[in-house]
Design a protein around this nucleic acid. Structure first.
Lengths: 363, 363
DNA sequence: TTGTATGCGTTATCAT
DNA sequence: ATGATAACGCATACAA
């Protein structure tokens, strides 16, 4: 069943049939209904590929996960983001096609990445190279979780600063902590950097000194990487934020790395009364290490995380954390991308997605 | 840059240029190289849509998640399955397009679901209606996690029976348990049914009676649903497997449902020495309930799960479980689908993916 | 309000 | 070994 067949059955031209099905105002209501009825009767569906080809619009949005680590969509963060993106795209009649990679070049080998997608969502850590590449090809892009100094891009971020700041308020004012350790992955990741700003500012605003442990090795908070997010350094006036001499630093997200870091902390004999871990998985590692050393959580040491992954309720005690609205991040990314597709010259902007403090038993 | 441009630059016809780029043996090596060089120099890429349209092959595989529950790809099971599928599809030059739904009809509203996908992977619980629909349209399909009595389909399943049986061996022979409770979601889910078979058989083979708790309500193990998987009932000779009077039954996957079920079990005063939960999330709920009642895991009650989700290492004690190779399930689904695309009349078959027993501290 | 004719970029058919 | 030409199914500029 092709358009031609429907047209001849309805005794009209292909043009009219095409218009009728597209609800064009150019077509008389009666013929419109006739064509639609016949199409329905014969279960006619326009050939998507032909249609897309003819109108030069694929209706496809690329969703890239530029992540060197496994898993990708199995990741507790990106899976839900994808769900949200899918939901929104469906509502708006777009399709989502996937690309994930291990190398930098991968997405560009993808046929649909080359000329058929109308826009692209770059999640995780997007290399500047990829951003440039898409820009060159005139493909609108929305970035998740990072901000780059580029034009005509929209950036979607969890409100890291706000969430972390509220969590710190909870620790300081509701729980009365004044010695709060900071457990982090490298700060070259924008999200962590912002959480660190909040950690610092909350101390300053409360008039208490930041906890440091001189017995711990003075690691480079950025893990030897440059702090790429100049945008935020300037925005918050942190051009010369201290990058050496943190309370404790962990490079890598694996739970057992946090576990070992906390063991080292305990070994110094100078343990803070609370620990703010930059992610739930680090927090879980911390709890395990503390408990194994005979310390009670939260009585001896309170522990808070960030993200609210599923495992946050599997640990005992259940983790106090900041719930990131991952689905909303996905939805917003698609909505913003559609704006960009409609108006490719839109100015760059950053959109912050609200989160919420989830107080459980670990603090 | 279109093919025509490359052709005229190379002083050949479009036909020759097309063949050269496709490495056709019909074209002379020297011209082949010439065309390729020019194409490369001008950074030419064939227009995927046009190519797909012309050859009547979209190169797209649909991946459906027919799941009424949220999250979808954020689910600890399906995320990794998708990762595996993506990896394999990429290797083979296919694209994956996504569909998830809340209603039964959703996938059929999707344009690409209608006529452009070359095949489809149905994961989660595929309604017979959807299977029929795709069949009618001549779209080859591979099903994950279920088996239906249909022709020309391939079914990919975790080796549920084998995994559960080995886990039971561990509990019975390595740990010496003889009173093992079974904590399950409704058995109308094929995977759980198979794990139940293994649970029953392991008892029979070891010559010990199955634990039952007469003080617990005698629930219908299928949760009032028909056991759809006749395939397995017959295959294993379980036509009249007892469906009433289970040790304990939980309907629904949520952790707190398991939590409450175990509280009821404890209230009877007749607690088994071990509990085999049909999924990790149920097992985690069980552990929480036991610990809160002052029972030690594994000293008083051992608990084992199934799946090996991330949270399995977040609980204390870390969960003994069966690791399902989710990525391999995804990979295999794509590989098998490609076979089906090549030969749509292939006979139906069931493929079991190997899993592995992960012994941790909860048993 | 409707129809005719052409284009979209590639691949396939059939000659040469 | 190469080329001219016809599909592929739909959308639209232009004409009526």
């Amino acid at each position: 069943m092709k358009l031609e067949d429907i047209a001849s059955l309805a005794q009209v031209s292909k043009t009219t049939a095409s218009r009728a099905l597209a609800d064009s105002p150019l077509v008389k209501d009666s013929t419109k209904e006739l064509v639609k009825r016949i199409a329905k009767e014969h279960n006619y569906r326009p050939h998507t590929l032909a249609s897309a080809f003819a109108r030069k619009k694929s209706g496809i949005i690329g969703f890239c996960l530029l992540n060197k680590n496994n898993p990708s969509f199995g990741h507790p963060f990106f899976g839900p983001v994808l769900d949200g993106a899918l939901e929104q795209a469906r509502k708006d009649g777009y399709h989502i096609i996937l690309a994930a990679n291990s190398g930098d070049d991968y997405v560009f080998d993808e046929p649909f990445m080359q000329d058929c997608i109308e826009g692209v969502v770059l999640s995780s850590f997007a290399p500047a190279k990829a951003v440039r590449e898409f820009k060159n090809r005139g493909i609108p892009q929305v970035l998740i979780n990072d901000v780059l100094p580029t034009d005509n891009n929209t950036f979607i971020m969890d409100d890291n600063y706000g969430g972390a700041y509220r969590l710190m308020q909870h620790l300081i004012y509701e729980k009365g902590h004044r010695r709060i350790g900071f457990l982090t992955d490298r700060l070259s990741h924008t999200s962590y950097l912002l959480r660190y700003f909040a950690y610092i500012d909350a101390h300053r605003d409360a008039g208490i000194p930041v906890y440091t442990n001189p017995l711990l090795p003075q690691d480079d908070l950025a893990g030897g990487y440059p702090l790429t997010s100049d945008y935020f350094l300037n925005r918050y006036g942190y051009e010369d934020i201290p990058r050496i001499g943190s309370p404790m630093v962990v490079v890598g997200m694996r739970t057992n790395v946090a576990y070992e870091a906390i063991q080292r902390l305990i070994a110094t004999g100078d343990v803070p009364s609370a620990i703010f871990a930059v992610s739930d998985s680090l927090a879980i590692g911390a709890i395990h290490a503390l408990q194994e050393a005979g310390l009670r959580v939260p009585e001896d040491v309170a522990v808070a995380g960030y993200d609210d992954i599923i495992s946050a309720t599997a640990v005992t005690p259940a983790l106090t954390t900041v719930r990131v609205d991952r689905k909303e991040i996905g939805r917003t990314a698609i909505r913003e991308l559609e704006k960009l597709i409609a108006a490719p010259d839109l100015q760059s902007s950053v959109i912050y997605i609200e989160n919420s403090l989830i107080v459980r038993s670990s603090t």
